[in-house]
Amino acid sequence: MTVTAGWYLALAAVLFVVGASGLLLRRNALVMFMSVEIMLNAANLSFVAAGRQLGVLDGQAAVFFVMVVAAAEVVVGLAIIVTVFRRRATASVDDLAGLKG
């Protein structure tokens, strides 16, 4: 059995759902952030698979840009999570509920 691009796209969809469920179900800000990274990489896989199938390099090139953006987001995200952690010594989002209404 050959593995076609369709399989990769299906895997990307599964990864995306895994990431989305993780974001919705987990309560630790770090784990939630890792779930988002899984979602971004699902999109990456889908880009590469599509690019490979189409025989053009656009999809692969896109992934480089996304990886750089994701790295920048890690910097920003960890800075924010560390700031919260310093104040509260917890990374659980349930403890952050001061803003409501």
């Binding site: 698979a49 199938q53 999809g59 896109a62």
Partner: peptide
Amino acid sequence: FGMSLVYG
């Protein structure tokens, strides 16, 4: 992810 589907 939406963009990747459109591209694909």
